[in-house]
Design a protein around this nucleic acid. Structure first.
Lengths: 192, 192
DNA sequence: CACAATACGGAACTATCATTCCGTTTGTCA
DNA sequence: TGACAAACGGAATGATAGTTCCGTATTGTG
């Protein structure tokens, strides 16, 4: 992660421990309060000073970016695992989508990232996103070959639609039910 | 608008003129830069002092709210006009949706409102939103009776889906095309 | 056990903005 | 035209929050 050239002497033990603590606290705080969470709050939760937080993450953006990257990686794992499954290809794809969207459920940080956040935050997750898209592409191709998925949709459409579903998550209105939104979208992708 | 009881002596001429200028400048500024537009900037564009802006709109939120209300009213007008049209009911409904979403196109303020904005901003547009939903309901009922629209969707689903489409608008990514997103959603609503 | 090298803590700094305040100007009416 | 209320302008205020700085503490090594 940090040292691009792996030489460099290893991190001190306390530093490594603190980095983990900070990430964990940030995960918790951002998930609950969204991007407006303050750095001081993250530090407090982690039981360290703000200075320490900044030693590990030079900007708030980079901290948020790392959290997003982790979530994206998780989605990538889900998608990769799905490639091993056998079952009706469209069903496998749809289930993967459900699983991946669930990763964002209840996490204000990711929802924020999928909505407002500019490229800045996403930059940290670039690689992970590309992988999810690539894996999604494979899942979709299988379903399209099986004739159960529309042929005029591409893997690039999926992040777009998923951002829409995430938009639904952030609204408190009771009539906004992201699971329902997701199912409607999945239906839209099905071949008729 | 302002005086709920219409008695009260009429607004002074310069005040009325300034109110309009402020709204126009705000429309322009917020549309271009989104909610982070500063009140000072709105004042500058309108050629008045900040104090004057605050005389007309007690908070930034209320200014944003008024803009949203106006847009919603516009959508209401679109929907009301659609009731007069005759044509295949689903097509009429879909066209209305296209027209209404287009109202938000290129307007960062509305997009912001449909995404991040809490109830605070929406409160100003409550009535207008309720009207759009009611009109949409009528358009949908007709299409459902004609058998060309899914029967398991309600008018309350529409704002949810539209917020999703607006989420797409705010992203610069070339693969995010809100017209495409909208068409996919419209397809999802069609009876099969 | 020293002694660097790392890392830490948290007060202080800075920038950003919404909002307020009050002295001045302008519109209206008799 | 004179007087008064209504409106205006914009400097000042106050709050928030990201980031920096530097004196102190901890860790790992010879």
């Amino acid at each position: 992660m940090s040292p691009s050239v792996e030489s460099e002497r290893p991190q001190r033990a306390d530093a490594k421990r603190n980095r983990e603590r900070i990430l964990e606290s940030a995960r918790e705080a951002f998930a609950a309060d969204g991007a407006e969470t303050q750095m001081d709050e993250v530090a407090r939760l982690a039981g360290v000073g703000v200075g320490t937080v900044y030693r590990h993450f030079p900007t708030k953006e980079s901290l948020l970016g790392e959290l997003v990257r982790q979530k994206m990686t998780r989605m990538g794992e889900n998608s990769r695992a799905a490639l091993e499954l056998d079952g009706e290809p469209f069903a496998v794809f749809a289930d993967t989508l459900r699983r991946n969207v669930a990763v964002a459920d209840g996490d204000a940080a990711i929802q924020f990232a999928m909505l407002g956040a500019g490229d800045a935050v996403w930059a940290y997750a670039d690689e992970a996103v590309a992988e999810v898209v690539a894996l999604t592409d494979e899942l979709m191709t299988r379903a399209q070959r099986a004739g159960t998925m529309r042929k005029d949709v591409s893997a690039l459409d999926i992040p777009m639609l998923m951002c829409g579903v995430c938009a639904t998550m952030t609204h408190a209105k009771p009539s906004f039910d992201w699971r329902r939104h997701l199912e409607l979208v999945i239906d839209a992708l099905r071949a008729r």
